[in-house]
Design a protein around this nucleic acid. Sequence first.
DNA 1: ATTACAATTCGATAACTTTCGAATTAATTT
DNA 2: AAATTAATTCGAAAGTTATCGAATTGTAAT
Lengths: 98, 98
Amino acid sequence: MDTKRMAKIFKALSNPNRLELYLKIAKAHEASFETGCECFVTDIIDSLKIGAPTVSHHIKELANADLIYTEKRGKFLICRVNEELAEEVAKILALQHK
Amino acid sequence: MDTKRMAKIFKALSNPNRLELYLKIAKAHEASFETGCECFVTDIIDSLKIGAPTVSHHIKELANADLIYTEKRGKFLICRVNEELAEEVAKILALQHK
DNA sequence: ATTACAATTCGATAACTTTCGAATTAATTT
DNA sequence: AAATTAATTCGAAAGTTATCGAATTGTAAT
């Protein structure tokens, strides 16, 4: 992966609220294996201290960095993490100093 | 690790030039086991397309996020990566969706 | 002692980011 | 059909960041 792409990914995770958003999506994704429920943005909005327009913007940035996938279902938006990318970034970080 | 701290680390890696700086320090660190040489900032400045004041600023941000350690030796500055932190972040990223 | 060099600090500027409220769009419920 | 709800878009304000050139500090070489 080239440096610019990597920097873009880190930038997407560099805002506390956006990172929390990402972590919640990841957690919901994990939980979905047991509950069968998916990650609805509505629920996340309620649990963060920022407004809907801001959440919408943050989600777009995460998706733009390929960190999450989104899918519109009726009037709801569903998100799930891109596991492969997270793994890839994790490996690069861990291997840098090996 | 709490979200704020994590976001700070990602922010430190979110600028392409700063990330390149970090990766170079990591690479120099790795090479040092064979060559015995350490990572001098002077050499890095020459290899990037940004000025010394900017590099100085970037290094401070990396150090401030605990991503690197710095040591002044004479008129030179030596940097090395904080391996433990990189590992820790890598693990969090990889485990999020497991 | 003077010069040269590495790095930092300062002050400025241009660009970008986060966030909001208001308005809008689109889908569902009543 | 009207009202409600989820999400997006827009425009703006406040704050932050990257970068630079000039000036400064501290160390080493001549």
